[in-house]
């Protein structure tokens, strides 16, 4: 089973890297892009035959405790297969 965890800065946090990327996109002619926020994606492969609920429970916990820093980041996840 595979889960994906998406970690991004909270909306209230300034993301200077994202801002720089947006400016570059603008200079390349992509003037319709209003904002870029740079985040991380973690792909987690789990042992076979685990119940989906158990995987979800684990992903929620490790997303909060390890993969994101709740002071500055939010995370979302999906169990993909």
């Amino acid at each position: 089973m595979i889960a994906k965890v998406y970690v991004n800065f909270k909306k209230t946090i300034l993301d200077p890297q994202g801002r720089t990327i947006r400016k570059t996109l603008e200079s390349l002619g992509y003037k319709d892009v209003l904002e870029v926020r740079q985040g991380k994606v973690f792909t987690l492969k789990f042992k076979d035959n685990l119940p989906k609920e158990k995987v979800e429970e684990m992903v929620k916990k490790l997303g909060k405790d390890v993969l994101s820093n709740p002071v500055i980041e939010d995370f979302e996840y999906e169990v993909v297969e």
Partner: peptide
């Protein structure tokens, strides 16, 4: 928390 320096 400590973020990337504002001027990168």
């Amino acid at each position: 928390s400590l973020l990337r320096n504002k001027n990168l």
